[in-house]
Design a protein around this nucleic acid. Structure first.
Length: 827
RNA sequence: GGGCAUGUGGUGGAAUGGUAGACACGCUAGUCUUAGGAACUAGUGCUAACGCGUGGGAGUUCGAGUCUCUUCAUGCCCACCA
């Protein structure tokens, strides 16, 4: 065995052998229990970045660990390959998006293979291929038939740069999530999925996910945004028969209303405006329309509004108050109208201050009454000025006040969600065409299932501006109506790529099926995903959509489970010098260079070593170097001892010298510690520190031996075999090469994981810690298995302790078995 | 403004309520080398020392990095959602 470590040669060699022998193929049928380990599949942008390396290494180590522990592991990979960058590249370089995407996939596949990942490539899924998007389209049709996909005219988020609409989830601070362009509101007829039908169950079932982090769950819960309250209807004084309904979560403050606000886009606003106020209201509304989302959402912006001239009547007490329009009321939430209670709501307070509107106190803190002149009182308290409800606690009043409104016919209980329906149309080329046609006679008609897929046309002009390139195709647009056979036009919108990624993990269970998206038995066998690993940036978008899809497909009886991902690990970002790696900052590290200079095993080891997976990881060149040196150290340890190592040596049933016994104990402790660290939240950073501890221990042991006896060789063999096996999920190539150099003929990756002996996984002696008043004052080496009294005596007889306790009154003595004695004295 | 995280040496980070700083990076000496950015050995929280030390302040406990309250700072997510 060569004493020098040449990762590049070793890695290429084994990658080839593994591929040729089909080492990572996953059979559908196996006696073993299943385990589905999944990384979020990448967008084929061109090259892997370190975030990918981290993500896939984490999942790969999990997959290999589970495989060694007796599971039939499904560990697939695929490509989220529809999307705008391909189209932009096409526009820039004149390349076909398909060619551009294919080339990227080819290159990135090569990189993934160089990383030594244990994927079953037979199950590869590529969302832009017709054999995949056919089924995305098919699923759309099933949702359409079930009434979960619909088209409607709506104010949508429009990004001019990308010339397409965006889902609410894709608008960040009023800007486009992709290009940072300013998002405007436009009225367009668009396709939506009815995710709001599932709002309640999507919220409630978060409780079924103990394997998800609370941060992700609260983010989803906040996004769904459930609130409970009431709708009250207010009669308009000037107009017979017209009512303005409002949604409120504070029905207890209903006696404190002093005005009412409707959104500028409110449907009845023109009717509610008097002739004198018409001009001012029109101006205000025109201005609101022009404002971008960013300006409008700005918190710092001072609230503005204008009166409409009309009034409403409070049905609870007959009071009259004016109607205003102001853009702090949102047309798309609740009813688009708000009852304003300046005394008990900070926004209403600010507005009332500005326009000198009155305020009326109806909730009081009995300990600290306030007239609310200086600020709104928004905490709980006792009702005042509220007729029969005076003296009630406001939390109790909420219910009875709504009950009164229900009984008298002007109100109802109402649960409201902030979640909106999912807008899935995109006016872009590189996506799955929405499979419907428009017929003059029959209207919207779904494409016949047997005619799927609706293929993307090739005869398109990518240089067009301001509209989708797909509309330039001559072959695509005209078709016949599947219903009446008459002439019809195809839908030119394509689907949001998040549709494609909402079900890809199901396709892995039956990737080659050309009869259906997946076989029901196979999807039920492999899913849900046992461990999903990916970035926190998908906490809302992808993960919420996927949960919705799973529930909808269950209702369509295509599968039998209701949550797609049992356990979720959200990995932290990869940083360099404390900042996120990005091309614009110029602080990226190219994985290819790392593979070339140090090898994949070093990259894998390092990316797991410094931080726990959920935390951000700071890339350092010195750290890479350190990992490379460590692998060299391991290699040298094995190589210099190759002649002394017998893979078949057994320590069972033998007794050993003290120092050999100690090395055996160290190995058992390492097996136990590493197994527990992986099982417990995948703490790979401590796993790797235990590799180092074990390696150091073997070197130490060896440095005390000038010559090895047969017993020594047996113990050394035991330790080295354990070290290699424990390291095999991480340093996949090095351990395989060493394993074979030591004479094995089968793969180390087919060896079972190691078991430890609880009696050996601890030190033979213990350190007795002696404290006085909780402070450590002495440490004494003692045998294990002392009685509590013996421990106490040893502690009290220690010279250091005697010195401290002489002449002092001992109040009590605490003894923790096998650990410590704490002597409490009076000071 | 709301929610969720996170605060431990020069740095990344370890610590079932029981020896704080495992394991590394870095640094300082030294050995071996023509040389070393290789390898190995020793040291490395602060303090001259008594001692002091897990962002600050309180509390529970025989004992707190860990539990409770409070406060500050940083990061992320949401944000005029009535």
């Amino acid at each position: 065995m060569k004493e020098s470590y040449f990762p590049q040669q070793i890695e290429k060699k084994w990658q080839k052998i593994w591929e040729e022998t089909g080492a990572f193929k996953t059979p559908d049928n196996s006696e073993k229990p299943k385990y589905f380990a999944l990384s979020m599949f990448p967008y084929p942008s061109g090259k892997l970045h370190m975030g990918h390396v981290r993500n896939y290494t984490i999942t790969d180590v999990i997959a290999r660990f589970k495989k060694a522990n007796g599971y039939n592991v499904l560990h697939p990979m695929g490509w989220d390959s529809f999307g705008l960058p391909a189209e932009n590249a096409a526009m820039k370089h004149g390349a076909d998006p398909e060619t551009w995407t294919d080339e990227n996939i080819k290159y990135m596949t090569k990189q993934l293979k160089m990383l030594g990942l244990s994927y079953d490539w037979d199950r590869e899924v590529t969302t832009c291929k017709p054999d995949y998007y056919k089924w995305t389209q098919w699923l759309f049709l099933q949702l359409y038939k079930k009434g979960l996909a619909y088209k409607k005219e709506a104010a949508v988020n429009w990004c001019d740069n990308c010339a397409t609409v965006l889902a609410n989830e894709q608008v960040i601070d009023g800007k486009c999530w992709r290009c940072d362009g300013i998002v405007e509101k436009k009225y367009l007829s668009q396709w939506f999925l009815k995710i709001t039908d599932y709002a309640e169950v999507l919220l409630k079932d978060l409780d079924k996910l103990p394997g998800w982090g609370d941060n992700v769950k609260t983010m989803q819960a906040n996004w769904i945004g459930k609130s409970q309250g009431a709708i009250f209807k207010f009669k308009v004084k000037e107009i017979e028969g017209l009512e303005v309904p409002v949604y409120t979560t504070r029905p207890d403050t209903v006696y404190g209303i002093t005005y009412l606000v409707v959104a500028p886009e409110y449907k009845d606003i023109e009717k509610l405006t008097t002739a004198e106020n018409k001009k001012a209201v029109e101006e205000y509304r025109a201005n609101a329309r022009k404002m971008s989302e960013i300006e409008r959402l700005s918190t710092e912006r001072i609230k503005t509004g204008v009166p409409l001239g009309t009034h409403c009547i409070n049905p609870f007490n007959g009071e009259e108050f004016p109607l205003w329009t102001a853009d702090y009321a949102l047309v798309e939430y609740g009813t688009g109208a708000v009852m304003a209670v300046p005394a008990h709501d900070t926004r209403d307070y600010d507005f009332a201050q500005k326009y000198k509107l009155p305020l009326k106190v109806v909730i009081q803190n009995p300990e600290k009454p306030s007239d609310c002149k200086d600020e709104a009182y928004t905490d709980s308290g006792i009702l005042v000025n509220s007729n029969e409800f005076n003296g009630m606690k406001n939390e109790e009043a909420k219910k009875v006040i709504i009950e009164k409104s229900v009984k008298e016919g002007f109100g109802e209980f109402k649960t409201q969600y902030r979640l909106r329906d999912w807008l899935i149309s995109r006016q872009r080329y590189w996506g799955a065409p929405i499979p419907v046609v428009y017929c003059d006679k029959c209207g919207i008609v779904p494409v016949d299932e047997k005619d799927l897929p609706v293929r993307l046309p090739k005869d398109v002009d990518f240089s067009v501006v301001g509209k989708s390139p797909i509309t330039t195709s001559k072959s695509f647009l005209d078709t016949v109506c599947p219903h009446c056979g008459g002439p019809a036009k195809r839908e030119t919108d394509t689907m949001d790529t998040f549709m494609c990624s909402s079900w890809y993990y199901m396709r892995y269970s039956d990737a080659k099926n050309n009869k259906k998206p997946f076989d029901r038995d196979l999807v039920n066998k492999w899913l849900p995903v046992d461990q999903y690993v990916g970035g926190i940036e998908h906490a809302i978008l992808h993960l919420l959509y996927s949960r919705f899809f799973t529930k909808a497909l269950k209702d369509l009886e295509l599968l039998d489970f209701d949550e797609p991902f049992k356990n979720l690990l959200t990995q932290g970002m990869v940083l360099k010098d404390g900042a996120k790696m990005s091309k614009s900052k110029g602080n990226t590290v190219d994985p290819d260079e790392i593979f070339e200079n140090y090898g994949a095993d070093t990259a894998r080891l390092f990316i797991l070593s410094d931080s726990p997976p959920a935390r951000d990881f700071d890339w350092s060149d010195a750290g890479v170097e350190g990992c490379y040196k460590f692998l060299n150290r391991v290699w040298r340890l094995v190589a210099t001892n190759a002649e002394n190592i017998d893979l078949n040596a057994s320590i069972n049933g033998k007794t050993f010298s003290k120092e050999n016994d100690n090395l055996i104990r160290t190995v058992h402790m390492a097996i136990k510690g590493i197994t527990n660290d992986i099982s417990n939240d995948f703490q790979f950073n401590t796993v790797i520190s235990k590799y180092r501890e074990l390696t150091n221990a073997i070197y130490d042991w060896q440095s005390k031996k000038s010559q090895l006896s047969d017993e020594d060789k047996t113990v050394l063999s035991f330790a080295i075999v354990a070290l290699l096996k424990l390291m095999s999920p991480v340093a996949v190539h090095l351990t395989e090469e060493a394993w074979h150099e030591l004479g094995a003929s089968t793969s180390i990756h087919d060896e079972p994981w190691l078991a430890w002996d609880e009696n050996l996984a601890k030190l033979s002696s213990i350190t007795l810690v002696v404290q006085v008043n909780g402070k450590v004052k002495d440490k004494i080496e003692v045998d294990e298995g002392l009685s509590q009294d013996e421990m106490k005596n040893i502690a009290l007889n220690s010279p250091k302790i005697k010195e401290l306790t002489t002449g002092k009154e001992i109040v009590k003595i605490i003894v923790v078995p096998k650990k410590l004695v704490n002597i409490v004295i009076k000071p």
